[in-house]
Design a protein around this nucleic acid. Structure first.
Lengths: 135, 135
DNA sequence: CTGTATCCTCTAAGATACTG
DNA sequence: CAGTATCTTAGAGGATACAG
């Protein structure tokens, strides 16, 4: 069978997008852009914390989201999980060396944001007002 | 009226999450984690490009996504759009100084990813095999 | 205390078709 | 060539209830 131009283009797009998913930088971006990842890592920067302590520090995260965030961090080798089988149970989370090194990148982003996001805000305001008025 | 403990907790979570949305670092993360943003910015690093040229370089992005990515970059003051009313029309996109400075952060992420994502990959493999086997 | 299972909502991303 | 409008879908995030 022959493909139409549209079908060929779409196949090329799909192929490219699949390759993109394997790109290291893309994977990193997807890992750290999930909503609570950076907050958890920043809280763990100074040492291990219990699950309940993390909940206290990040009240916006539901229990489910906190657990799933920690699971993916553990899976990625960025955080270790230490389970103590007492009554009641106790779990401690701690950054791995790899996690600590990633913290450097996160701080870089945070710094740029603190220095420049007000400019971005301003640009957004300008753009939006140009849109709504006589444009 | 009185609130249950659950209702109070949830109100606190909502309030916290709203504040989080205003955090500069969070906003930055949301801006650059959208799928095509970094690719577009990297392609514009060496100079202005036309819309059609960007499409050629990033075949995975549909026309709609490329346009909407460029719009949000323009709105954020990271990219300028120059429209030339010839026949056919021509538009050129170029990084602003602010956009160039953000490129530094992006390169930092890319570098960390190139250096360390193989370790992450390995950790994922280990974690998954531990899950599937005797655990 | 910590973690799982279920159900629900909202939106980013994509497919498609059309206009100046 | 560049852009817009509409429809659909997959998945992240959240609410709730339950379990070891």
């Amino acid at each position: 069978m022959t493909l139409t131009a549209d079908q060929k283009r779409q196949a090329a797009q799909t192929h490219y997008a699949e390759g993109l998913g394997l790109c290291p930088a893309r994977q990193l971006l997807e890992a750290i852009s999930s909503k609570w990842v950076t907050l958890v890592m920043l809280d763990l920067a100074d040492g291990a914390l219990r699950h309940s302590e993390l909940r206290r520090r990040i009240p916006g995260a539901s229990q489910k989201m906190l657990t799933s965030t920690l699971r993916s961090l553990e899976r990625d080798g960025l955080v270790t999980r230490l389970l103590t089988l007492s009554v009641p149970v106790r779990t401690d989370y701690e950054l791995t060396p790899l996690g600590h090194s990633l913290l450097g990148v996160i701080h870089g982003m945070k710094e740029w944001a603190d220095d420049n996001m007000d400019q971005v805000e301003e640009a957004r305001g300008d753009y939006d007002s140009r849109r709504s008025s006589a444009g």
